[in-house]
């Protein structure tokens, strides 16, 4: 870390002075702007002039064939990938391109991966504990004690995701669907302003899917949620706004009905060009 960066960090020495609430400025409506974003890997443009705006409290579904750039888009928002050009803003105050992953996470952007990744060696309870919004520097983490308040909050989320009975089991023994929920639960613990959810129902049973849909729709309003999903039935059941990505840019946007009647979308989904199998 350069000297300048460490100097910049100085204003965070007194964390108790910083306001607890997320400092995101959403007075102008949108919580996320992506403008003219392009990413190329060795000349291949994974994202090509992408423009996307998510409003505060919105639930947005993003669909698109494989290779449309959905995962790369999430990588950009969470700071894992740097775009070749373009700008990404969180609210109208934070330029996400200048921040690293933990900084972005602590701003209030949570992400659920395509493959459920929970900490398998830790118990369900501890998985949620780690995800909780808290002082995540070293010494506070070392000396952190469990208070009744924290435990209540964890229990509350355990209730929400239906894993109360399994709270002391290691997360490794959970079923696939349970891991997906645990991961959503971990996102809830973070109290994010913006939730990025990558294929939440892959490999779930019909009932599990319904429950997940309930969970996600319940979240919208307090939090903004972006869901990337392949399963059209599921998208139809939760989506109000749908964005279709194709070859790294937005192909269509609107309600599910509008989008599915768009001829270009139909072509992309039904056309023979879709080289990769899903």
């Amino acid at each position: 870390m350069s000297l300048i960066d460490s100097l910049k960090d100085r204003d965070r020495v007194f964390d108790f002075m910083a306001p607890q609430a997320s400092p995101v400025d959403v007075r102008h409506g949108p919580i996320l702007y992506m403008e003219d974003v392009t990413v190329s890997f060795d000349g291949f443009k994974a994202i090509n002039n992408l423009n996307l705006t998510i409003d505060d409290g919105e639930l947005r579904c993003i669909i698109g064939p494989n290779g449309a750039g959905k995962t790369t888009m999430m990588d950009i928002i969470t700071g894992k990938t740097q775009p070749t050009q373009g700008s990404v803003w969180f609210g109208s105050r934070h330029n996400l391109l200048t921040m690293n992953e933990p900084e972005i996470a602590s701003l209030g952007i949570g992400r659920k991966f395509q493959k459920p990744t929970v900490f398998e060696a830790l118990s369900v309870f501890h998985n949620l504990e780690l995800a909780m919004a808290a002082d995540k520097r070293i010494l506070p983490t070392l000396t952190a004690r469990m208070t009744g308040e924290i435990r209540d909050r964890i229990e509350e989320v355990l209730e929400t995701i239906g894993l109360t009975a399994l709270r002391h089991q290691p997360a490794g023994i959970l079923s696939h669907g349970q891991k997906q929920w645990l991961e959503i639960g971990m996102l809830l613990m973070q109290r994010p302003r913006l939730l990025l959810v990558d294929e939440p129902v892959a490999g779930m049973t019909e009932q599990e899917m319904e429950r997940t849909a309930e969970l996600l729709t319940g979240l919208a309003g307090q939090q903004s949620v972006v869901v990337v999903e392949h399963d059209m039935g599921f998208v139809r059941s939760i989506a109000r706004q749908v964005t279709v990505l194709h070859q790294g840019s937005v192909l269509a946007e609107g309600t599910m009905d509008e989008v599915s009647s768009d001829p270009s979308v139909v072509e992309v989904y039904l056309g023979a060009d879709d080289g990769e199998a899903a």
Partner: peptide, 20 residues
């Protein structure tokens, strides 16, 4: 809790980073 963060890092480093 730091020990649990360590274990989390051991098993899924990227995930831990996304938790902040």
């Amino acid at each position: 809790k730091l020990g649990r963060v360590s274990v989390a890092t051991r098993d899924a480093e990227a995930r831990t980073r996304f938790l902040g």
